[in-house]
Design a protein around this nucleic acid. Structure first.
Lengths: 184, 184
DNA sequence: CCCTTTACATACGCTGCCGTATGGTTTCAT
DNA sequence: ATGAAACCATACGGCAGCGTATGTAAAGGG
């Protein structure tokens, strides 16, 4: 038996995201999480003032990575069409996946329905991503912002569906992108 | 002051959906709901065995209406393209709205992430709707099931977005349908 | 090696909600 | 009107999680 090492803030956040995906927001409680980590809440209350602040830390962590994770990835492709096509595949990649392999974004969006602070951040991230998509599309002559919204809604909806029936969303997403790129 | 009438099962379910939309699954508790209805949990435990069965009743109610509500509406349009175009607008209509005006479907889908039974029902409803969409599309020569998935994902994603930023989704949805109908 | 800092364990009182028990009210049929 | 059935109020014991207090153990610098 390896002597279990001491825990860091990150360990707690990591456990939080797993719990959020597997049990929903009601899984974000100090004592159950401590049991999961085979420790006690003494550790929890050392790293965090209270549960509320812990959730805040999780939210801040996600907010920080939610936008840059995707965009920095896309920026490596030179042309806009290539970037758009990459969108369908990136959702299968590591940037969207949680620590346990399941995607965290649907869990965050679900969380946002019972927490106004989370809702606020999700709204902000959505606006940010939508603006980014719009400017990309206008660069190739598609100025109607409805198409950016369609692409983004497709991502959200397909990821939701995939997380339920297990089907990949790269296929349909690519089809959608191709469909819109024919308007170019 | 009107003497407050006695409550029925439906009143409790109604209050449950409102709470689900406004506070999430954690709002589905006997005593808070009773406070909301200005009564006590004595009433609650008269109408329902326990909280678990209450949630089951809510779920059953939604399941029953989730499919038929839309389809029976669509069936009034004769042609497939007209039915598809109606899809974008129906989402603004009463069939999708909750008692308080806010859409209940996103709240149900969020609920499903913390309750396996709900997830099971949502999965089933999704499959049902998807099959229905697929057969409609094949009737007009679009046999690739990816397009049914795209339309449905668009609905889900757009409704999620709309419930956050308040923008209507009839516009983008109509655009998507038109885009796909050009393939006909 | 010792002493400070960091990290965790345990015990406590508190609150919110659960489900039951029991008794009080309405409502309605006869 | 009156008895039965439907409906609601209240009081109780129990449990799970919160946050605090306090003690203990493990690192790391001097």
């Amino acid at each position: 038996m390896t002597k279990t090492p001491r825990l860091t803030k990150q360990d707690w956040l990591r456990a939080g995201f797993i719990a959020l995906v597997e049990r929903g927001p009601s899984g974000l409680k100090a004592e159950p999480l401590a049991r999961q980590l085979k420790t006690t809440k003494g550790s929890f209350y050392w790293h965090f003032r209270d549960v509320s602040q812990y959730r805040g830390a999780m939210l801040a962590y996600w907010q920080q990575s939610a936008f840059s994770n995707i965009v920095e990835h896309l920026e490596r492709e030179p042309s806009v069409p290539k970037r758009l096509r990459l969108l369908g595949q990136i959702a299968t990649g590591a940037a969207w996946q949680g620590y346990n392999g399941a995607p965290i974004e649907p869990a965050i969006r679900a969380w946002s329905r019972s927490d106004a602070q989370v809702a606020q951040v999700v709204l902000q991230i959505d606006e940010h991503r939508l603006r980014y998509l719009e400017t990309m599309l206008t660069e190739i002559g598609i100025s109607n912002p409805e198409f950016a919204r369609l692409i983004y809604a497709g991502l959200i909806g397909l990821e939701d569906l995939s997380s339920r029936d297990g089907q990949a969303h790269a296929g349909p997403m690519g089809t959608l992108i191709d469909l819109i790129l024919t308007l170019e």
